[in-house]
């Protein structure tokens, strides 16, 4: 018999997890409900997943989301990782530090409006490319933060050791620094990818008018204006599974600590 304190702590933990996951579980269950209504269970069916696969609008949106997520992740990871190395190698002032965190902290809606005004000012045609650029903006900050935790305990002497042994700076980055921080870079990339996949506000503001640059969250939003349909449940389940897997992988990647 565990002590009362342990018992209550355990109960509390279970309740918190229930609170977090029951709604998601309900959504997942309903996506397999034969009837279209969330009120009654009428039997197991995969027909909503079928409907999902047949909806051209949803497939287009999913493709757009994938394009945005992949390209913005690659760009943000590249820039964010380099930024992290630069910031840690030579410590900068607190002002620069704070500015680096800004895209993570300021509300999405503010960033969205700012980016929209900026693009308009430049007379920049909006579309997928503007969503990509906007996602790169906030993702750089996230990638940088993740990679920097990795570099905190980094022994910079290995950098000098590599140069001392005859390597150029570029070779040193490729052969020594990158492999050592790779788990962090991978974790940062996966985080960036998930953030990009389910990002709505900024994408909505910077997508422009055309249907062609609609992303998945925007598509879902436009669909639920006419009520939650079971297709959306199915789609949400798919998106959630993808995000969940990526987050798990990211955590795993960042755990296997290299470095002595």
């Amino acid at each position: 018999m565990p002590s009362p304190a342990r018992f209550w702590l355990g109960a509390h933990l279970r309740l918190v997890y229930l609170f977090l996951y029951v709604p998601i579980a309900v959504l997942m269950v309903l996506s397999f409900n034969r009837a279209g209504l969330p009120t009654a269970w009428t039997g197991f069916s995969l027909k909503w997943y079928g409907a999902l696969a047949e909806s051209q609008a949803i497939i287009n949106a999913a493709l757009n989301t994938l394009i945005v997520a992949v390209i913005s992740t690659v760009l943000a990871t590249l820039l964010g990782a380099l930024l992290a190395v630069g910031m840690e190698y030579r410590r900068r002032g607190p002002g620069l530090e704070a500015m680096l965190f800004a895209p993570m902290i300021i509300p999405d809606i503010v960033l969205a409006i700012a980016l929209l005004s900026f693009f308009t000012l430049l007379d920049f045609t909006l579309g997928l490319h503007s969503i990509i650029l906007s996602h790169v903006v906030f993702n750089i900050a996230f990638v940088c933060a993740v990679v920097r935790t990795r570099l905190r305990s980094f022994d910079w002497a290995v950098f000098e050791a590599s140069v001392d042994l005859g390597a150029s700076e570029a070779t040193t980055f490729r052969r020594i620094i990158l492999p050592m921080i790779f788990p962090g870079v991978l974790a940062g990339a996966m985080l960036a990818f998930t953030l990009s996949v389910d990002e709505f506000i900024i994408a909505y503001f910077t997508a422009g008018a055309g249907q062609s640059s609609t992303t998945l969250p925007m598509q879902i939003y436009s669909m639920i204006r006419f009520g939650v349909t079971p297709e959306i449940n199915a789609m949400a389940t798919v998106v959630m599974l993808v995000s969940f897997t990526l987050v798990l992988l990211a955590q795993r990647a960042n755990k296997g600590v290299v470095g002595v």
Binding site: A157, V158, E160, A161, L165, M180
Partner: peptide, 16 residues
């Protein structure tokens, strides 16, 4: 990286 001189670091700085 072009000097015919090598340094053994205090922390050893081995590549982990």
């Amino acid at each position: 990286n072009r000097r015919p001189v090598n340094l053994m670091f205090q922390s050893y700085a081995l590549f982990p």
